[in-house]
Computed example of a mutant assay.
Amino acid sequence: MLVLRSAAASPFARKVRIVASALVLDDRIEILAADTSDPEDSLRRENPLGKIPALILENGETVFDSAVIVEYLDWLAGGGKVIPSEPQGRFRTLTRQSLADGICDAAVLLRYENLWREPPQRSAKWIAYQNEKIARALAAFEAEPPEELSDAGTIALACALGYLDARFEGAWRADHPRLVAWLDVFSDATPSFEATRFRG
């Protein structure tokens, strides 16, 4: 049995879980919660960075981060499933995944800034810098919403939008109607998207 060290709110862990479902591998993966702030959590031995998600293989080795886990799961399922084998599709999918993951990176940093710093210590310049990354990435996706619904790039995008909904009250929706429509279609076509929704 594979073990996924995870946290319910993590968009990166959610991406892995949806990929596992799309590849019909979810029954081979045990989800084990990790506390990234706890120095006693074994996560820091499994991934020296102390970050989630981390996938512990049956031989005890650990695979991380989420993009590498997705590639591993695709390989485990026979390859070419959520990451196309042919070069043009492959690199388009991986680039979209990277852009969507970048939205999540910036959004998580904004979340930490608000959680861990008192208001006088928060950097308006840093907050604006992260918000600008998110805005540019969303604009790129809004200009050309993906047609695919079940590759690594589009699953990552759905998880990024879901995280913005959960942590930032869906403020992105007002200026991105094409992405809103795309996410509705994705959600309808992907039961695991609703099943993995963070409710906290």
Results as ranks from 00 to 15, higher is better:
T95L: 12
T95N: 12
T95P: 09
T95Y: 13
R96Y: 10
R96D: 14
Q97A: 15
S98V: 10
S98Q: 03
L99V: 15
A100M: 06
A100H: 07
A100E: 03
D101Y: 15
G102H: 12
G102P: 11
I103N: 10
I103A: 11
I103S: 13
C104N: 11
C104M: 08
C104Y: 00
D105H: 08
D105M: 09
D105G: 09
D105V: 04
A106R: 13
A106G: 08
A106N: 10
A107W: 00
A107L: 11
V108F: 01
V108T: 09
L109V: 12
L109D: 04
L109S: 10
L110K: 01
R111K: 08
R111G: 01
R111A: 03
R111L: 07
R111E: 02
E113Y: 01
E113I: 01
E113N: 01
E113V: 00
N114P: 00
N114W: 00
N114E: 05
N114A: 04
N114F: 00
N114D: 00
L115K: 08
L115G: 01
L115T: 01
W116S: 00
W116V: 00
R117P: 00
R117L: 14
E118K: 09
E118F: 06
P119R: 03
P119A: 12
P119D: 10
P120Y: 13
P120K: 10
Q121P: 07
Q121I: 02
Q121M: 08
Q121T: 04
R122I: 05
A124C: 12
A124N: 12
K125D: 12
K125A: 14
K125S: 14
K125L: 10
K125M: 04
